[in-house]
Amino acid sequence: MVNTKVSLCGTELDNPVIPASGTFGFGYEFAELYDINLLGTLSFKGTTLAPRFGNPTPRIAEAHSGMLNAVGLQNPGVEKVISEELPKLFEVFNKPVMANVSGFSVDEYVKTVEMLDSVEGIGWFEINISCPNVHGGGMSFGTSPAAAEEVTRAVRRVTDKPIIIKLSPNVTDIASIAKACEAGGADGVSLINTLLGMRIDLKTRKPLIKNKTGGLSGPAIKPVAVRMVYQVYDAVKIPIVGMGGISSAEDVIEFMLAGATAVEVGAENLVNPYACRDIIEDLPRVMEKYKINSLDEIIGGAH
């Protein structure tokens, strides 16, 4: 029997597979398809202080081995997430969950985390810093080490739960951002969020997505993501949650060798609703094939 257990910021996961924020809703709709308690945990839809409709449609475009999205953080706002969505999730999920939080100012992050902090069942915060900072000229928090550290410090003050900062790949030196988060008191980092992209319709000669740009995800971005996880592993001591184009158990192992303690699966859930279940069920076979007895032994094994 192989051992798929890993420990993420002090909490044990049965396996390292986590559905990525924005591709799994609040989980309960997937519970109609399979028992979601077989997941390591899940990261729920990016939650903001106020309700958000998101961007106008079309929000989605296809790409080779991937997709662009400009959903724009549609969510009902933290109050309704706590009063309506999470109770439905906890009816079908009995493991600690990862709360994905977004904001457009430091204050919004802080207030949203404060409100979620008292909810029982939240095991980790995943702070998405890919959003534009309205007080910082619209530049994303995740593109400046100083802004990333500021957000980290601010949320650190209001919660004792593990904080994982989710990094944007749209930067020249992701390791320096990861270091800033570590200095600010982060318990972990997760990466990568989507890569900024665009597609143009030859018939209309206009961008396919109404928002013009969208985030690229799916297998197309996997080598970029593996490279970034590898670089961040060299730069920080805190654990890494790796993601970007994962669609198989082999991919999980590749990210762990690069330095990930756990992984998230995003776009693949959309094209194969059973993706996470399939990957988890296939992990023991692939571990045996590559003579891995225990997954926690291979973290960073490629270094």
Binding site: G22, T23, F24, G25, E29, F30, K45, F53, G54, T57, P58, R59, I60, A61, M67, N69, V71, Q74, L208, A267, N269, L270, V271, P273
Partner: peptide, 16 residues
């Protein structure tokens, strides 16, 4: 509408 998933997971197809 342009769809990511077709079954409600991605919020790609929302209208008011």
């Amino acid at each position: 509408e342009r769809m990511g998933c077709g079954f409600g997971a991605c919020m790609g197809c929302t209208c008011e």
